[in-house]
Write a protein that binds this DNA or RNA. Structure first.
Length: 751
DNA sequence: TGTCATCCGTTATAGACAGCATGTC
DNA sequence: CTATAACGGATGACA
């Protein structure tokens, strides 16, 4: 599996014969756009791969993060698009999609149309066809296939960014199945796959019939070391004494700050993230300049709402920011996360302590990286060592291209033995080979169903062929799945998702499940719940519980302190839940807790109260509410088949989840600029429907708390009324707000 | 009596994709 | 096949 890099290059040194961007066989206008970005020379790993890509060859490029592999993919897209081709750029994260979309937008000046389509950011489905280059998440790409979008056949370049994600058991199969489908449907399309350095990238290339390029070269030299008892041992054998401090992290951060550098610390729990950032805050504050701290403080005042009723994490973050440190994890709401990211980029935040969110996510390099923890808890396994690739990704964040001449990354050890082990394994060691996880029963179930629903596979032989085309098929024999394939097909048939009477064919239920993009098991759970549900008897909590019982939702963890309250809720319902699991089991309690949290959310209980009462993070609350919104929507669609009476109620519940509001506010939310807070104020003041707003005058409306005169006028106009006695149309007909964007932004969206 | 240090048992554990229909700089 | 940091309560040392 192991082979030497094909084009070994000494890290950090430019070869004498560097290739210039102007030498690329590429349209002059495109070359100019690249030059305008300040890129004149190609990095060594970019040179050969660019040539291959521009010749239209399938290409696998496996290089460290931040070594400029995106540029190679951009070249492929732009060159093809200028010749009239259509490109699909597949990334694993929505945040990455935004990043790529913005970078690609530079090529708009060439007349290219760039688009983005992810679950929460869409450029309107039928119009996707018009784009020359479209950035999507892997799930979105899969979904386009499931909806049998015709133009996929005409795609000429497919970029798969971060293909090593194939190794991920949850989402990897989606990516490999999507690539396999492309090659099947459209064998002419050029595939450009970008990967981190992995042991078996050559296998990926063989699977994809691609040219293979790999290298350890980085644009900024990376110096790694292991810290033990006040001493740093670098990978090149040199050693250095670190400044003294309270602990290893303290010492290393002090060293970085004294040299004027920013640092990124990776730890393995959210709590550690907060604790560490808090502990570091005074030190960081002492070693930062006062003007930056002042600027940061005023920025924080401007964009982070403080005060009494803010969740505890927010208070904690504000406390850290006062010293110029911050923490970053998925429990933070998106606005706080981007605040931290942005101000680290500006240099105002000097240290971020983060969970792995920042290692795999957007590009946020720092001069110094400290990886504190090399283990992570995994349920059922205890503390397991981190994969080498993950540690490499974290270390790879060290060194900012164009700013730093070098990056430094430190791992921690507590004993001499550990130091040796860490050095061997994580610094000199190679990343694990990636393995297809398509054979895992749950992925097989999903993708076998979608394949059948698309009409691509009607026999078991065709199913085997489909497997043969995947990376799984490359690594294993399709027949090795025989047993699992059998149980999967049996499940799909007995649950009525697939019929086998005349070949393999998806039922209406199976079709909808595949298109709604929910796990077949979720679909079955929701269907059974719908059959049990009754209008009038089934309340929101029970519906939310059904959604929370689904494998598509990871429930909140029930804490010991929740037990009493959960017992109360459960006793109250007394077995009336739509999905009965083993009551009293931990998973059941988690599902009930999740439903209870969501119920509070749609009853406008304050965020801080919910977070404190259930000990959950605001970021998780939002994510759960969003997942529930999606699942409840899907449940509403399934209700059209299984329980029509419930359909409307589910749609309303889905809308309530989106905004976190009671039913009575739904009507007012239709007005732009009116979020949950303003809607509540308006409602309490007696404006219960959009039609009430149309009749109001600006004077009356501005007496409502939180609504000034200007806003009042705007709201009346947007509600379809007339603010000034100019005599517009009368308030008849449906409330169709006039076009034009309100300048209110999402002000009303936030509590 | 109040405060802090220490010990010891208890407690909780990273992350994040997706439908659909319409409307923006 | 399950490890560990962090927390909270109890206890004891000391001013």
């Amino acid at each position: 599996m192991t082979q030497p890099p094909q084009n070994p290059i000494t890290p950090g040194t430019l070869l004498p014969d560097t290739m210039r961007v102007t030498e690329l066989p590429l349209d002059d206008r495109a070359v100019k756009v690249i030059l305008d970005q300040g890129i004149e020379e190609l990095y060594p790993p970019q040179q050969d791969s660019s040539m291959a890509v521009l010749q239209g060859k399938n290409t696998v490029l496996a290089v460290p993060t931040a070594s400029g592999k995106s540029l190679v993919a951009y070249l492929a897209c732009v060159s093809a698009a200028l010749r009239g081709g259509k490109c699909l750029y597949i990334v694993p994260l929505r945040a990455l999609a935004t990043e790529k979309y913005q970078e690609l937008s530079a090529f708009r000046s060439l007349g290219l149309r760039i688009g983005i389509s992810t679950g929460d950011l869409d450029s309107s489905d039928p119009r996707l066809e018009k784009f020359d280059i479209l950035v999507v998440t892997s799930e979105k790409a899969d979904s386009l296939f499931r909806h049998r979008v015709g133009w996929l056949k005409r795609v000429s370049v497919v970029v798969a960014d971060e293909v090593h994600l194939i190794h991920d058991s949850g989402r990897g199969p989606t990516l490999e199945v999507t690539l396999a489908r492309f090659r099947h449907l459209n064998p002419e399309a050029q595939i450009v796959a970008l990967s981190a350095t992995i042991a078996n990238s050559r296998d990926l290339a063989l699977w994809l019939d691609a040219e293979h390029f790999t290298s350890d070269w980085r644009p900024v030299e990376l110096r790694r070391g292991v810290y033990l008892d006040g001493n740093i041992s670098f990978e090149d054998g040199k050693t250095e004494e670190a400044p003294s401090g309270k602990g290893p992290v303290d010492c290393l951060i002090k060293r970085a700050l004294e040299q004027g550098h920013q640092a990124l610390v990776f730890v393995n729990t959210r709590r550690s993230t907060e604790r560490t950032a808090e502990d570091l805050s005074p030190l960081v504050g002492r070693l930062s300049d006062d003007r930056s701290l002042e600027e940061l403080k005023s920025l924080a005042r401007g964009s982070i709402r403080g005060g009494e009723d803010v969740p505890v994490v927010t208070e904690r973050l504000i406390k850290c920011l006062k010293g110029g440190s911050a923490f970053h994890h998925a429990g933070l709401t998106n606005d706080l996360r981007s605040f931290v990211e942005e101000n680290f980029k500006k240099g105002l935040i000097r240290v971020i302590v983060a969970t792995p969110t920042l290692a795999a996510g957007i590009n946020l390099p720092a001069r110094v990286v400290v990886v504190r923890d090399l283990h992570r808890f995994e349920s059922g396994l205890g503390n397991v060592p981190l994969p080498v690739m993950e540690v490499h990704q974290m270390c790879g964040r060290a060194g900012r291209p164009r700013y730093d001449s070098m990056g430094e990354a430190f791992l921690l050890a507590r004993t001499e033995d550990e130091k040796e082990g860490v050095m061997d394994h994580y610094i000199h060691g190679e990343s694990e080979p990636i393995l297809s996880k398509l054979g895992v029963e749950s992925s097989l179930r999903t993708h076998v169903l979608s394949s059948i629903a698309m009409g691509l596979t009607t026999t078991e032989e065709e199913l085997d062929e489909f497997i043969d085309n995947t990376f799984y098929g490359y690594q294993e024999e399709a027949w090795s799945l025989k047993g699992r394939m059998g149980t999967v097909l049996e499940y799909l048939e007995t649950e009525g998702l697939v019929s086998t009477t005349s070949g393999l064919r998806a039922t209406e239920f199976g079709q909808r499940t595949s298109q709604l993009y929910i796990d077949p098991v979720s679909a079955v759970i929701l269907r059974d719940a719908l059959k049990k549900a009754e209008v009038g008897k089934t309340d929101a909590l029970m519906l939310l519980h059904a959604a929370a019982s689904t494998p598509d939702m990871i429930p909140f963890f029930p804490r010991r302190s929740d037990h009493e309250m959960l017992g109360f809720i459960m006793k109250d319902r007394d077995g009336d839940f739509l999905v009965d699991d083993d009551e009293g089991s931990q998973s059941f309690m988690g599902q009930v807790k999740t439903a209870a949290v969501l119920e509070q959310w749609i009853n406008e209980v304050h965020e801080r109260t919910i977070c404190e009462r259930f000990d959950v993070y605001p970021g998780d609350l939002r994510n759960k509410a969003d997942t529930a919104r999606w699942l409840v929507y899907a449940m509403g669609e399934l209700a059209r088949i299984f329980n029509k009476d419930l359909s409307r109620e589910l749609v309303r519940l889905s809308d309530r989840l989106e905004h976190g509001i009671r039913e009575e506010l739904l009507d007012l939310m239709a007005v732009k600029g009116v979020g949950r807070v303003r809607a509540r104020h308006l409602f309490n003041a007696g404006y219960r429907k959009v039609k009430d707003l149309r009749k109001a005058t600006p004077d009356e409306l501005s007496r409502v708390p939180g609504i000034g005169r200007k806003l009042a006028t705007e709201i009346i106009v947007l509600a379809g009324g007339h603010a000034e006695p100019l005599g517009g149309e009368e308030d008849e007909g449906p409330p169709s707000p006039p076009e034009g964007q309100s300048s209110l932004g999402d002000f009303g969206d936030e509590q």
